[in-house]
Design a protein around this nucleic acid. Structure first.
Lengths: 364, 364
DNA sequence: TCCATTTACTGAACCGGTTCTTGACATGGT
DNA sequence: ACCATGTCAAGAACCGGTTCAGTAAATGGA
């Protein structure tokens, strides 16, 4: 049952160490270490023999001992700073995580997830992780201008993947995405293209008064979308679009929608920064006796399954979050390996047309 | 592999070890260890002095070194075996995790999340975690009869919290929840009460032909709900309720709903095992020109925010998943501490009445 | 006052790996 | 035949803690 010839340690199963392997193979500990790590210093035959013995007696590495030597830990960190209430609803993070796991799982790397309520807590988590060498690298999201987390991570020397579009303008803090590969690469989804497609589609349907309900305005990705909207609207000769900011919640989404719909002139189409607010918008429209899409067109962002659950189903700007997560995971693994990783945009945005968009009202 | 900046990364700041503390305080390493761990062997004054010095020079424990000695690691494991596609949509897990974090965060414990595609992979993850002592304890969900994971975890000696109602009947495998506190406690939500409340509410509204669209039938919590429904229906003198099983997805939820609604006799109310399928059901009803709630009442389960996004809004059996997660986290911490934890049901179910339920059609 | 017991503290071993140093041996060039 | 070179392997130190054995001092009891 247990391995042969081992001292009976209580219920028996002390797990084998490299010393056990060395003894069983008749070599020194160091030889075993070299063999297992594919390093020079051992002849081919001995290497093969040692590996066979290790396999036979069921040796597995101790991550604790490895971490003690400063090598990889097999854990990536992700801190989420949004309120738990919102996280429960937004499928984005779950899909991102599942994409990451598709890459990390086979590599035998786990994801350490920490949800915090305040920005200061997040900084504390990074400090602790860095001090204890508990993770190999981290993911940082929802970047704002002069984000203190980036400075901290740089000081701590903790490798990080930054999920955010770069600032278009020169970045005074010096933390903008570097041109070359770095230990803190920036990865972002192509929101500019997504916004352009949505806008052109609406214009093709005859819309001209187009509004936007945005997320938290200090985040760079919100800024990027706003800039894209303004520029494209100007290019298409549209009036300046109204833009309201929210915290991504249903409540603020509903408020923003109401104030847009009772204002003058009323927009004929609204683009939302996530699915949740767009879904809520359908309810507000109903409450105001506006028919979607006959009198109002609604476009959502993310294209999670929520877009399928509403009536009418939501036209959405689509992002392949799962694939994005896979890309992020590869970047993390690269960083943990000590390599530098290229910054850059990810994938292609698409527009998933469903039932919440239609021709602009004739009166317009 | 060698990161280019070994020297620049340091910039002099090697983080302090207990040897540094010992030197600075003028005592032996062992004295420092005793002082920091609140163990006997040091006088009060020296203890205070050592703690002060440690604080001053900024000492932090190395989890690697601690783990090497077999003490706690500060990491709890959660393996999710549902397809990523479904996880993205179901808010349940995100809310559970955020509840867990509310307890674990302040204790400086992270959550290792692993998403797998197959049951065998899940077993492999447990094996690896146990072998490498990578986590202190794990959470196991979606328990089926004779679940192989429970036997494995017991054999590995990995403490686990089991999220499932117990089998009512005697459990031939011997893995049913123990009477006393144990190293593998079972925690479950009070689904029986929830089901009873929903049923009585519908009966009070005049419904008699009540159907159910269930989740995956091999899970014990599905069985528990089914049993509760059957028993309560019998007690209330209702005809045997139709029960269809699904994989929780929109597709199968829609199929099940269709087959119920085109069957004879058609049910006047349907209870769903999650929000997602109930939301989809509203679309199917619309497609069949059935008005909700005039001709069909719909009850969802979980009461996530999806219930608010639909039109009409969904009446739901409510579970405080966040609080449940907190309870689970406490149990995990107890197990990691080496204590035994009591099994038992959690909290009270409630019925959140909204717009998807109404009086049974008069024709009935 | 003297011996027994407790207490405070130190030094060293240990956990399970990695890596540096050293030495034995084989090989090759001249 | 001789020394320079290279390969393979063993031994020991080390990572940052915990813990055990041992010693010196303090305390207590009679």
């Amino acid at each position: 049952m247990a391995s042969p010839g081992e001292a009976p340690t209580g219920s028996g199963k002390r797990r084998p160490t490299i010393s056990d392997v060395a003894r069983a193979a008749g070599v020194a500990k160091s030889a075993v270490s070299y063999a297992l790590n594919d390093k020079p210093g051992v002849s081919k035959e001995k290497r093969r023999h040692i590996l066979a013995v290790a396999e036979r007696i069921g040796w597995q590495p101790s991550s604790a001992a490895r971490a003690l030597m400063g090598t990889r830990v097999g854990l990536m960190g992700l801190v989420l700073n949004r309120p738990a209430r919102l996280l429960g609803l937004e499928p984005f993070y779950m899909e991102l995580i599942s994409g990451m796991q598709e890459v990390l799982g086979p590599l035998d790397i786990a994801l350490a997830l920490q949800i915090v309520e305040a920005g200061a807590d997040e900084l504390a988590v990074y400090r602790s992780w860095a001090a204890k060498r508990e993770v190999d690298a981290v993911v940082v999201t929802d970047i704002s201008q002069r984000d203190p987390r980036l400075a901290l991570l740089r000081d701590l020397g903790l490798p990080a993947v930054v999920l955010s579009p770069p600032l278009a303008q020169a970045d005074p803090t010096g933390f903008g995405p570097p041109e070359q590969a770095s230990a803190m690469p920036w990865l972002w989804t192509d929101d500019i293209t997504g916004m352009r497609m949505a806008l052109r589609y609406l214009v093709a349907l005859g819309h001209r008064r187009i509004a936007r309900v945005a997320g938290i305005s200090r985040y760079l990705h919100t800024t990027a979308r706003t800039t894209a909207l303004r520029q494209e609207a100007a290019r298409l000769g549209l009036p300046e679009p109204a833009i309201l900011t929210t915290d991504y919640s249903q409540e603020q989404g509903a408020d923003a929608t109401r104030s847009l719909l009772i204002g003058q002139p009323r927009p004929t189409a609204i683009i939302y920064d996530n699915d949740v607010m767009a879904a809520t918008a359908l309810q507000v429209a109903r409450e105001l006796h506006l028919e979607v899409p006959r009198q109002l067109s609604v476009i959502a962002w993310d294209d999670s399954m929520i877009a399928h659950l509403t009536a009418p189903k939501l036209t959405s700007i689509k992002v392949d979050v799962h694939a994005y997560g896979m890309r992020v995971a590869s970047a993390l693994d690269g960083l943990a390996e000590g390599s530098l990783v290229e910054s850059g945009p990810f994938g292609l945005a698409g527009l998933e047309v469903r039932d919440s968009t239609g021709a602009a009202p004739a009166a317009d």
